[in-house]
Write a protein that binds this DNA or RNA. Structure first.
Lengths: 132, 132
DNA sequence: TTAACCCCGATCAATTTAATCGTAAATAGT
DNA sequence: ACTATTTACGATTAAATTGATCGGGGTTAA
């Protein structure tokens, strides 16, 4: 339980892979997908997402590819997770309020506390730390 | 992302509900289900699970029900989550190793670190804290 | 102008989670 | 002993989420 998604997993693996290269060197989706046995299309999507978030930069055309743009030490895991997968919380009620049992829920406040702990834990962790 | 399941949610709500009663008073599944608008069968199952784990005690027959058995301050959230939902980790590779990309995975060690942080965070949190 | 890339929405498949069903078994009250 | 009320639990179905694929675009170096 409390698992992250493949998309996030692929993103981290890809970032780490790119980080091991020279600063401006490009890596294309196919290369990463082959090396780590991932479905190309899905990884491509993930990389496109990273590009939209300005974490990597995409270069189109032949010999194109991706390279890291933002300093990974400057992105915390909480923001990273939320950019990739949306709100980070052990329950939805932390964010929206269309939960049917909200009005009579008796564990709302403690849940908020847990959420805060989890969020702050990931806030104090940088993506760079993970990808070295 | 990183959500807990309904089952755990129902369990916590039920425990808190029971904790607000007298020490030996019984509460039946129907009462809780109605009060918090949960599907009875599912909640019942959850309570049965709690009973198997010896966290609550079940009394059968008319006027039967459940009551808290174990001191909730003595159960940490990591164990509770794992009892209710199985292994707690942001990725499966922490526990088993039939992940296809394991051999070439480049983020295994950092993932382990994150897992440890998460596990220890929940280990330092008691169920009693959550249910007051 | 073609081949090798990125871009992106739409759809389909697989997995996981949630809910329901059906049948036991226990027991208090009568 | 019978009945109503309750827990016990595996099996099944339904819904939601996630993962993967498809198809049609753009861009640009050679």
């Amino acid at each position: 339980m409390l698992k992250i998604t493949r998309k996030v997993e692929y993103a981290l693996i890809a970032l780490r892979h790119m980080q091991e290269k020279e600063k401006d060197e490009l890596t294309n989706a196919k290369e990463i997908a082959e090396q780590y046995a991932m479905p190309v299309e899905l990884l491509a999507k993930t990389l496109q997402h990273l590009a939209r978030e300005k974490i990597v930069e995409a270069v189109q055309g032949p010999h194109g590819g991706y390279r890291i743009k933002k300093c990974l030490e400057d992105i915390n895991m909480k923001d990273f997770f939320e950019k990739m997968e949306g709100p980070l919380g052990i329950m939805d009620c932390y964010f929206d309020s269309d939960c049917t049992l909200l009005p009579m829920c008796n564990i709302r406040t403690p849940i908020q506390r847990i959420n805060e702990s989890m969020r702050s834990m990931f806030e104090n962790m940088s993506v760079g730390e993970i990808t070295q």
